[in-house]
Amino acid sequence: AQVHVDGVTYDFDNPEEAEKFAREMAKRKGGTVEVKNDQWHVE
């Protein structure tokens, strides 16, 4: 699973880890999390 944050792509073998990371980053940035094509996007 991939997580996109500020133009940087992070690869995770485990989708749950990807989701956890995406939500944590969004919380830190005060942003939102979107899922597109099985990829997490932190805005």
Rank of each mutant, 00 (worst) to 15 (best):
E43D: 10
H4F: 14
R23T: 06
E34L: 14
V3K: 01
E34D: 09
D6K: 04
A26F: 02
M25V: 09
V8Q: 10
T9R: 11
D6M: 09
D11P: 07
G31L: 11
K20S: 10
V35M: 14
G30D: 06
G7N: 06
Q2H: 10
W40G: 03
V33T: 05
A26Y: 02
V35W: 15
Y10W: 08
D38N: 15
N14Q: 05
N37F: 09
V42N: 04
H41K: 07
Q2W: 10
N14W: 05
P15N: 12
T9H: 05
D11A: 13
V42H: 04
V42F: 05
V8H: 10
K27F: 11
R28H: 09
E19N: 02
V5I: 13
Q2N: 04
T32I: 12
E24V: 05
N37T: 05
K36L: 12
N37I: 07
E19W: 08
V35N: 10
E24R: 08
V33K: 03
D11E: 13
E34F: 15
P15M: 12
A26N: 03
R28T: 09
E17T: 07
V5C: 15
A22N: 01
E43V: 15
K27N: 10
K29Q: 11
F21L: 01
V33M: 06
F12S: 00
V3Y: 01
V42Q: 03
H4R: 09
F21V: 01
R28S: 11
A18W: 02
D38T: 08
K20T: 08
R28Q: 13
N14T: 14
V5L: 09
D13S: 11
K36S: 09
W40Q: 05
F12D: 00
E24D: 08
D11I: 14
R28P: 02
A26H: 03
H41E: 06
V3L: 02
V42D: 03
M25N: 02
V33D: 03
F21W: 09
E17G: 02
D38K: 11
V8A: 08
G7D: 04
T32K: 12
Q39H: 11
V8K: 12
K29P: 04
H41T: 13
A22H: 01
R23L: 09
N37L: 09
D11Y: 15
N14V: 05
E34R: 15
N14A: 06
T9F: 06
Q2V: 11
Y10P: 00
E24A: 11
Y10M: 02
A1L: 14
E34K: 14
R28M: 13
G7W: 03
D38R: 12
D11L: 14
K29D: 05
G30F: 07
G31V: 11
V8F: 11
E34H: 14
N14R: 07
H4M: 12
N37E: 09
E16H: 10
V3F: 02
D11T: 14
F21D: 00
D11F: 15
A22R: 06
E19I: 07
G30I: 03
P15R: 12
D11W: 15
A18H: 00
D38P: 05
D13W: 06
P15K: 12
V33S: 05
R28V: 11
Q2M: 08
M25R: 02
D6T: 02
E34P: 04
V33A: 11
V35F: 15
T32G: 06
E24L: 11
V3A: 02
R28F: 11
Q39G: 15
G31Y: 14
A18M: 01
E19D: 07
E16R: 10
Y10K: 01
K36N: 09
A22V: 02
A18P: 00
N37Q: 09
K29H: 14
G30R: 07
K36H: 13
H41S: 08
D38Y: 10
F21R: 01
F12A: 01
A26T: 02
A26W: 02
G30E: 06
R23W: 12
V8R: 12
G31P: 03
V8G: 02
Q39Y: 06
A26G: 03
M25Y: 08
E43L: 15
D38C: 15
G31F: 12
G30P: 04
M25P: 00
E43I: 15
P15Y: 12
G31D: 05
K36M: 10
K27H: 10
G31K: 05
E19V: 04
E43S: 14
V35R: 14
E16W: 13
T32P: 04
R28I: 13
V8C: 15
E43H: 14
V5T: 03
P15A: 13
D11H: 14
V3D: 01
N37V: 07
Y10G: 00
A26K: 02
Y10T: 01
F12R: 00
D6V: 03
Y10I: 04
E17N: 04
E19K: 04
P15E: 10
F12H: 00
V3S: 01
G31R: 06
Y10V: 02
E43Q: 14
V35E: 06
G7H: 04
N14M: 04
K29G: 08
V35G: 10
G7I: 03
V5K: 01
N37Y: 09
R23I: 09
N37R: 07
F12W: 01
H41P: 03
H4W: 13
T9V: 14
W40F: 13
V42K: 04
D11M: 14
N37M: 09
A18T: 00
E24K: 08
Y10A: 00
A18V: 01
G31A: 09
D6N: 11
H41M: 09
T9Y: 07
T9A: 06
Q2T: 12
K36T: 10
K20V: 08
A1K: 13
K36R: 14
V33N: 03
H41G: 03
A26D: 01
E34M: 14
A1W: 15
E16K: 10
P15S: 11
V3T: 02
D13R: 07
D38H: 13
H4P: 01
Y10S: 00
R28N: 08
H41D: 04
D13V: 10
T9S: 06
R28A: 12
E24W: 11
T32W: 15
E34V: 15
Q39S: 11
V33R: 03
E34I: 15
G30S: 06
D38E: 10
G7A: 03
P15H: 12
V42W: 04
G7V: 01
A18Q: 01
Q2Y: 09
K27D: 09
V42P: 04
P15L: 10
F12M: 03
E24T: 05
K36W: 13
M25L: 11
N14D: 13
A18G: 02
E19Q: 05
E16N: 06
M25H: 03
V5F: 11
D11S: 14
T32R: 13
F12E: 00
E34S: 15
N14I: 05
K29T: 15
G30Y: 07
V42I: 09
M25I: 10
V3I: 03
A22Q: 02
F21G: 00
A1F: 15
V8W: 11
V3P: 00
E19Y: 09
D13G: 07
G31I: 08
G7L: 02
T32Y: 14
A26M: 05
E43N: 14
G30M: 06
Q2G: 03
V35T: 07
A18K: 01
G7K: 02
A26L: 05
R23C: 14
K27E: 12
F12T: 01
H4D: 04
V35S: 08
A1Y: 15
E43K: 14
R28D: 06
D38A: 11
V8N: 07
R23M: 08
A1E: 03
G7Q: 03
K20Y: 08
F21P: 00
K27I: 12
N37D: 12
A22K: 02
V33E: 03
H41Q: 07
Q2K: 13
E24I: 07
V5M: 13
Q2P: 02
N37G: 14
V35P: 04
D13I: 10
E16T: 09
T32S: 09
D11N: 14
E16D: 11
H41N: 06
Y10L: 03
K27S: 11
G7R: 02
A26S: 04
Q39A: 12
E24G: 03
Y10F: 09
D13K: 10
Y10H: 02
V33I: 10
D38W: 09
W40E: 04
R28K: 13
R23A: 06
A26R: 05
K29W: 14
V35H: 13
E24M: 12
K29R: 13
V42A: 03
E34T: 15
K20W: 11
P15G: 08
D6E: 08
T9N: 03
H4Q: 08
T32A: 07
K27M: 12
H41A: 07
N37W: 07
K29E: 06
A26P: 00
W40L: 08
M25S: 02
K29A: 10
G7T: 02
V33Q: 04
K27A: 14
D6A: 07
Q2E: 05
R23S: 05
